[in-house]
């Protein structure tokens, strides 16, 4: 097995300052938001890597850096052994870029409402001057729609069908890696299952690699080969699904698993965790999770924990065992 994607110490800082005039008048400093902080992980070829986190965890930012919609502030992204930020050979970068595609969360916003489905699906190929005859029709059938749907407009489709169209567009340029940013969280439960199954089938048929970004742990349990849990821009735990769900090591992962409502949890009375996700502009010192952590000590308030390997699990916690 070789790593198809390798992310090293990836960091992204956003400048969220007010306009300079307001800063001068209100005597404010520049403000920076660290969305992603020194994240490392690798994705093996033909596997599904899931990034799980709540809002503000930086999961979407990582996805957008991977596909090149955002530039990393620091650290590197290597795909197929090519460092996309520093590689000077433009052809090589273009070649790698064409192997990466993305599926977005909101199927209503990710299709141009003024374009016909045929043009939407064929655009990735048409933009590179490729042959598009019959392409959209073939792909539509591959994702479970009709070839005759190619002449319609997006508004004629339901949410689940639109997400299939998005998948068809992502497949058009025959990518190897697809970054899926919350692909089913805008969909109803019964339709979510259809889309997840389709994604599994396509992965097997076409040998795809997925980076699956989601806030919903239950979704990844099925799909993922490896799961990374993010909290406030930091990777706190990484493990295989079975291990992660059965023996979560990081207190945050444990809290997430406890808090998720369960369909068999009749009358379950969980003692809910305290507090909320802190403001990422002023993250807590030391371990970002310490204000909410039941086992936090002074050490956690001062030092940011480094990643440790416990068995097959990588965890960033001073007290995990």
């Amino acid at each position: 097995m070789n790593a198809y994607v390798s992310v090293k110490a990836l960091t992204r800082i956003f400048d969220v300052s007010k306009p300079w005039l307001n800063r001068i008048i209100e005597r404010r400093q520049k403000a920076f938001l660290t969305a992603v902080s020194e994240v490392d992980f690798q994705i093996e070829e033909r596997t599904t890597y899931a990034l799980v986190g709540e809002s503000g965890s930086g999961k979407s930012t990582i996805g957008r850096m991977l596909v090149g919609l955002l530039r990393p502030s620091d650290g590197e992204v290597e795909v197929e052994g090519v460092n996309l930020a520093t590689e000077t050979n433009a052809d090589k970068v273009a070649e790698v870029r064409s192997n990466i595609q993305m599926i977005f969360q909101d199927p209503y916003a990710s299709l141009n409402p003024r374009w016909r489905v045929r043009d939407i699906i064929a655009e990735p190929v048409a933009a590179r001057g490729g042959e598009t005859e019959g392409l959209a029709e073939r792909l539509l059938q591959q994702v479970g729609l009709h070839a005759s749907d190619a002449g319609k407009y997006p508004h004629e489709f339901s949410g689940g069908q639109r997400q299939r169209i998005c998948i068809a567009r992502a497949l058009a340029s025959e990518p190897k890696l697809i970054v899926c940013d919350e692909p089913t969280s805008a969909l109803d439960v019964s339709v979510q299952a259809q889309v997840l199954n389709l994604m599994s089938d396509l992965k097997d048929d076409l040998g795809l690699t997925y980076l699956l970004i989601t806030h919903d742990l239950t979704v990844v349990r099925h799909m993922a080969d490896r799961i990374g849990v993010l909290y406030l821009g930091r990777l706190v735990e990484e493990a295989d699904p079975k291990v992660l769900f059965e023996t979560p090591k990081h207190p945050y992962t444990q809290m997430l698993l406890d808090a998720a409502p369960r369909t068999d949890g009749f009358g379950r009375e969980v003692e809910p965790s305290q507090g909320e996700i802190p403001d990422p502009i002023n993250p807590p010192s030391g371990c970002a999770f310490h204000p909410r952590c039941p086992i936090a000590t002074d050490l956690c308030r001062c030092d940011r924990p480094v990643q440790r390997k416990i068995g097959d699990t990588v965890v960033a916690c001073h007290h995990a065992t």
Binding site: L69, F104, A109, S110, L111, N112, E123, A127, C166, R169
Partner: peptide, 22 residues
């Protein structure tokens, strides 16, 4: 800010193509 524009950028469309066509 809508994702169809992100999708077009991802494909490598030029800013002018995105502005005029999308």
């Amino acid at each position: 800010s809508k994702d169809y524009v992100a999708a077009a950028r991802l494909i490598g469309r030029s800013p002018w193509a995105i502005m005029i066509r999308h």
